[in-house]
Design a protein around this nucleic acid. Structure first.
Length: 559
RNA sequence: GGUCCGAUAGCUCAGUCGGUAGAGCAAAUGGCUUUUAACCAUUGGGUCCCAGGUUCGAGUCCUGGUCGGAUCACCA
């Protein structure tokens, strides 16, 4: 074996082979079920295939051995092979002369569903019109001791699919589709869409002059985002290290150093909950462009995502959970306007629930908690107890939210909470939310028109945050002050407030060009493109609780 | 962490009122040998997730636990 054998997929895609298969398929489509294609066509195609000469392929036996015919799979595509008693030999493992056809036939008969074999032979079309390989030489490659999964149902148990991804992939390659069945992406195809999405993003960035870099995964400070890190220890240096929660501050150091367009597409780690949209490690694209602002970044982000959607799915409209998501136009709306738009008038609040003084953190917090209760009550159907209250006009909400926006420091978090409750689940079509409160955007430049607003946006699709970008704050003194604010928030018990990075501030003091940057959650984007409802379906080996029995045994053994 | 749902053969699943553990696929043996998921016959295959309890008797009822899924809270 040289590694240069044809793969089944390549062989099937090879011009003359694909053409023959298509010609036969076209004719077969016109036939009554059960009838065979005309022999003249078969003979004609066989002439063509004969001229191609010998083929040499390998793969997994995709169906139980029954008779002379069996399908091989390379994980993506299947190809039928035909072995006739007396017409093929068996290769020996020691490289000696082939075994007799009699022995080869015995070997053929004891092959199992799932075994890996190689065959040499020639292509032909069967009487029923399927392009196949007539085997002249069989090589036994590897044994499958464990039985193969059900060829009709595959593996249905999500836990087994995720824990034994290899088995899930095998199942998806062996699966036989029933006639008339609606085609859903197989596991293999899902990860091919993922790969296409990522490679199209890399191409797009590189075509636009971006250079890919790799910054530290293990960092002395977990900063650049609001999240809890994984902590580890470096023995030789005797220091704590943290798995990075974001590469942002490193990438911006590179802006300082003169990389004007730079990106990193790699893993981030966050020591937080696991859910259908959260995995402890996830893939994030971050890129930065000097001399660009937030608006330019939104334009570019829209094009980038459209391009990758196009490459991965072939269109701009994607069906997700029965909804059509249209990527051809991304709406832009300010956070406060979104809150007003999505705050339905039927949700009534009592006057006493509206704090008069919204700069008082305690009252603010009560206000948002009240709103939360009302919204939760709405979703679980117990709203009636709230519904006879005084009406609160949109104007009143506006005033409340506007006051929130005007209030320094603490209020940003409250507005965001309000936004999360009221707006986020409703953002199904791609929507840029703009004009974020400055206090929750410590790395973002403030708007020249309104000092309380950050030049920041987040992109939401199907109620999920997919991207987060802004005009980068490049004033070292202001950055230092924002870090200090975060440190104060930390003192007050907000353990997700951002950690001060002195060296980053020092880097800024050398002058960072005005720039825009963005982070795009690749896993979530892939979920949307593959119609998967769990992040674990788009990550090959998602994190799961250890299997209890194995854990008990292995920890005993390891100690 | 809260709530709801689930776990039966290698895989997909039935299992009635608490009364001998079932089917299809897969596997083994034989037949067939140009078939299109499933040809014919025969055979083997079970810690019914775990531990208690109720009962003459538990896959089934009760309690606790494990694992998973959905959902809520935190996070991207």
């Amino acid at each position: 074996m040289s590694g240069n054998e044809d793969t089944i997929s390549n062989l099937k895609a090879f011009g003359p082979v694909a053409a023959a298969a298509k010609e036969m398929a076209d004719v077969r489509a016109t036939l009554e079920p059960g009838t065979r294609p005309p022999a003249e066509l078969k003979d004609k195609l066989n002439e063509t295939l004969k001229e191609l000469g010998g083929v040499r392929i390998a793969g997994r036996v995709a169906t139980p051995i029954r008779g002379n015919f069996v399908h091989l799979t390379d994980g993506r595509e299947k190809l039928q092979i035909y072995a006739k008693k007396g017409q093929f030999t068996l290769a020996r493992n020691d490289g000696g002369a082939d075994r007799e056809p009699e022995t080869a036939w015995e070997a053929w008969q004891i092959l199992d569903h799932g075994d890996l074999i190689g065959v040499e032979g020639y292509l032909f079309v069967t009487n029923t019109g399927e392009v196949s390989v007539h085997v002249e030489r069989l090589t036994f490659l590897s044994k499958a001791l464990s039985p193969m999964p059900d060829k009709v149902h595959g593996i249905e148990d999500a836990e087994i699919k995720q824990r034994k991804r290899y088995l899930d992939l095998i199942a998806s390659s062996l699966r036989v589709e029933m006639a008339g069945e609606k085609h859903e992406l197989s596991t293999r195809e899902t990860f091919e869409v993922r790969a296409k999405t990522i490679s199209s993003i890399r191409h797009f960035l590189e075509d636009n002059g971006y250079i890919e870099v790799e910054t530290p995964m293990l960092t002395p400070k977990a900063t650049g985002a609001a999240a809890k890190p994984f902590k580890t220890h470096h023995n030789a240096l005797d220091i704590a290290l943290y798995a990075r929660i974001a590469p942002e501050l490193y990438l911006k150091r590179l802006l300082v150093g003169g990389f004007e367009k730079v990106y990193e597409l790699n893993r981030n780690f966050r020591n937080e909950g696991i859910s259908y949209k959260h995995n402890p490690e996830f893939t994030m694209l971050e890129f930065y462009c000097a001399y660009m602002n937030v608006n330019g970044m939104m334009d570019f982000c829209e094009k980038l995502i459209q391009k990758s959607v196009m490459k991965a799915t072939g269109g701009l409209v994607v069906e997700y959970e029965g909804k059509k998501i249209n990527f051809s136009k991304f709406e832009r709306i300010a956070m406060r306007d979104a809150i007003i738009r999505h705050f339905p008038e039927r949700w009534k609040l009592q006057d006493q629930d509206i704090p008069q003084d919204l700069s008082d953190p305690l009252r603010l917090s009560k206000f948002t908690q009240y709103v939360r209760r009302v919204f939760i009550a709405e979703t679980d159907g117990s709203l009636s107890q709230h519904s006879q209250s005084y009406p609160l006009a949109k104007q009143r909400i506006w005033e409340g939210v506007d006051k929130l926006m005007q209030t320094e420091h603490e209020s940003g978090g409250e507005i965001e909470q309000l936004f999360d409750i009221v707006v986020e689940p409703n953002l199904i079509q791609p929507t840029f939310i703009i004009d974020y409160p400055k206090s929750i955007s410590p790395l973002s430049k403030a708007s020249p028109e309104d000092p309380q607003i950050a030049e920041r946006f987040e992109l939401f699709i199907n109620g999920m945050e997919v991207a987060n970008g802004f005009s980068e704050l490049n004033d070292p003194r202001e950055q230092y002050e924002r870090f200090v604010d975060q440190a104060e928030a930390r003192e007050r018990g907000d353990d997700e407030a951002m950690v001060l990075d002195e060296d980053y501030v020092r880097a800024l003091s050398y002058g960072m060009p005005p720039a825009a940057g963005i982070g795009i959650g690749i896993d979530r984007l892939v979920m949307l493109l593959t119609n998967k409802h769990s992040i674990r379906d788009v990550i090959l080996f998602p994190h799961m609780r250890p299997e209890r029995k194995q854990e008990a045994e292995s920890t005993e053994d390891d100690e």
